[in-house]
Amino acid sequence: MNYFSLFLIWGTLGVTLYSVIAISLAVYKISKSRYKIYQEKYDQFMIQKHRVEEKLNQRSSS
């Protein structure tokens, strides 16, 4: 096995390991409901967006 193949194999294993860490963190966030703070922020943003759109519609219709 030459150095280039070894580089590719070890590189892929490194990327895989890092991805496994990322997967574990994401699963932890989902299982412990840590995403809920973002859910609230997202809901607030959507409500604000809806209000702005309504105002714009009213202005354009009047």
Partner: peptide, 17 residues
């Protein structure tokens, strides 16, 4: 591994939305 990672990202974003 990227398929699993991407699917979990989609689940996380879906939960937030």
């Amino acid at each position: 591994i990227l398929f699993i990672l991407s699917t979990i990202v989609q689940v996380l974003i879906g939960k937030i939305e």
